[in-house]
């Protein structure tokens, strides 16, 4: 009958939505983990994972609500709720750790390369809004400190903080030639210093980031 068909339809679509929601969740966590690993190992700042973090933060808020709702009535319920709460809290802790560490690593890199990021359009795009605000304020504070302490006593020609010429460049850029550990997803080839290096599937290599940057972006290589 029509009604049953409609019900069945509804069930299957909602079940498949649920199922895909499940896989989406697992994938999201894996994506966050991988983003964290990448930020730690790679010398430059990577684009901020806006959508991913939004989704995860949203779920976290729901979990926090769940905990709060249930812990009020804790005495009445059986032990099962307690155990569930423990599980939910533990997972919350784990995800929070990931996010915090992710943000901290990015902040460290932003601190180091503030002047460079500020002057470069492409780099600026990689920061989230909050991070951009943070960077501006940090730079302001720093400049004011330097100025008050000693810069104002220097002759004007020496007061700049972003000179490029001379023996050493004042602006600190991320060193893209630092080596990283990577694992190969498929066979391929890489150019280093004009030489070709063959890469095998499932092989683990250490080489400079500049050589593997594109492959990592495309996803055929994973940083470890």
């Amino acid at each position: 009958m029509d009604f049953n068909d409609i019900l069945k339809d509804f069930e299957t679509t909602s079940r498949s939505r649920l199922r895909s929601d499940d896989t989406l969740r697992t994938e999201d966590l894996q994506a966050l983990t991988q983003a964290w690993i990448q930020e730690r190992t790679i010398p430059e700042v990577l684009p901020y994972e806006e959508d991913l973090l939004e989704r995860i933060l949203e779920r976290m808020r729901k979990q926090i609500e769940f905990i709060e709702l249930n812990s009020i009535e804790l005495q009445k319920h059986e032990r099962e709720i307690k155990l569930l709460l423990v599980i939910v809290e533990s997972e919350l802790d784990r995800v929070q750790f990931l996010i915090r560490s992710y943000v901290r690593t990015r902040l460290m890199k932003i601190d180091q390369f503030s002047v460079y990021i500020r002057s470069n359009e492409q780099e600026l795009k990689k920061l989230s809004d909050n991070e951009t605000v943070y960077m501006e304020r940090h730079l302001d504070l720093l400049m004011e400190l330097y100025n008050r302490q000693f810069l104002k006593n220097l002759p004007e020609s020496l007061q700049a903080l972003d000179e490029g010429g001379g023996l050493v460049n004042m602006v600190e850029k991320p060193d893209l030639h630092k080596p990283v550990f990577v694992k190969c997803g498929e066979n391929g080839m890489v150019m280093i210093e004009g030489e070709e290096v063959e890469l095998e599937k499932e092989g683990i290599y250490v080489m400079r980031y500049s050589a593997v940057k594109e492959l990592v972006k495309m996803g055929s290589m994973i940083v470890l």
């Binding site: 630092k178 550990f181 290096v197 683990i204 290599y205 250490v206 400079r208 470890l224």
Partner: peptide
């Protein structure tokens, strides 16, 4: 230039990581 270390596990890689990275750099 590069180094290949197939077959190691993550912890073993992590153990030698600072050494390898510093010397290579």
């Amino acid at each position: 230039v590069y180094l290949q270390l197939d077959g190691l596990s993550l912890i073993e890689i992590n153990e030698v990581r600072p050494f390898v990275l510093k010397v290579m750099n």
